[in-house]
Simulated assay, not measured.
Amino acid sequence: MAFLMLSAFSVATAQNKKYNPFYYPELSKYADPKQMDFSTEYKQWLTPDASQTYKDITNDILRKGYDFERTLFNSEQFIYEDMDGRVCYYKQSSFNGILGDNYARIEIYINPQVERTDTLTFKVTGKSKVKKNICDFTGEIRVEHIYNIWERADDPDCPDYYLMVCNYIFKEDETQYGTGFFNGTYGVYCHIDEDNKKVCLDIDLGGGDGYNQRNYVGTWQSYKTNATKRCIWGEYRLPYTFDFDIGDGEMRINPKYNSPEWEQWQSEFFNPEEKISWWEDSLKGGKQ
């Protein structure tokens, strides 16, 4: 696989390190756990700054007519069929996340079918689930920037990773029970396939311990009451959840936020075959 090359004149470098929004003890020094919306902070954290060597390649991608792999925008997960990784494929799945100050479990399913409506905007459809309440939604994800980033500044031919920064808005069906809309910042690690002119999901990268390739950070707002809640979901570990996740090498839920839904998540994590494809058989507007 070939990678986009560094242009020496467009590189920024420096010495400062960012805090880690995935690690509670450190995060608590830099952010207020009572704050509701961390989408701006997450975008700033994703965006390379003076502590990194990077290049914004968004215009290069557009100019060269690159396509985007659909798994950058849906909730399919990459699965290895056997221990040797000889058989592999993408499987329909859902993201897990938190909703509100009590960190209720929310699940988000984004359909495999993704429509590119203009150069940087992608239309998606899917379902949300809180307890037994399941709602349909339609939405848009808009790519703002794609960066390649070097942690080894002395090796300009090999960028360490690529990062795509987006914004999103998902609107649930107003005719259904307990609905509203989601909006915020989406970050995803990717790689550039020059041979096939495609931006692809990077299944091997992720910040921290490698379990956060795709994360959505923002809010949910009720249509009926206008009440707004923190809402963050993604692939395993979640940023800006403070003492909800007290794990070190892996995600571990603080017992004070335990619920039947999070107990189910833990069981599913250790026994993936137990995960129910609730989005396939759900009834529209099901109530709690």
Rank of each mutant, 00 (worst) to 15 (best):
A2C: 07
M5D: 08
A12H: 12
Q15F: 11
Q15Y: 09
N16K: 05
K18C: 07
P25D: 07
E26A: 11
A31F: 12
K34E: 12
F38M: 02
S39I: 05
Q44M: 13
Q44R: 15
W45C: 03
A50Y: 06
S51H: 01
T53R: 05
L62G: 00
R63T: 15
K64Y: 06
G65E: 11
G65V: 05
Y66C: 05
D67V: 03
Q77K: 13
I79K: 10
C88A: 13
N96C: 13
N96F: 12
D101I: 00
N102M: 00
Y103P: 09
I106Q: 12
I110D: 06
P112G: 06
R116F: 09
T119I: 08
T125N: 09
G126H: 00
K132E: 14
K132L: 10
N133E: 12
N133T: 15
D136P: 02
F137L: 04
I141D: 07
R142K: 15
V143E: 10
V143M: 14
V143F: 08
I146L: 12
Y147M: 03
I149G: 02
A153H: 04
P156V: 01
T175F: 09
Q176V: 02
Y177W: 12
F182K: 11
G184R: 08
G187W: 08
H191P: 01
H191I: 06
G206A: 12
N212D: 15
Y216I: 01
V217E: 11
G218A: 01
Y223P: 00
K224T: 14
K224I: 11
A227I: 14
C231Q: 10
L238V: 13
I246D: 14
G247E: 12
N254I: 07
P255I: 04
N258H: 11
P260G: 07
Q264M: 12
E273C: 05
E274Q: 11
K275G: 04
L283M: 10
L283I: 13
G285Y: 08
G285T: 05
G285A: 03
K287H: 06
Q288N: 14
Q288P: 14
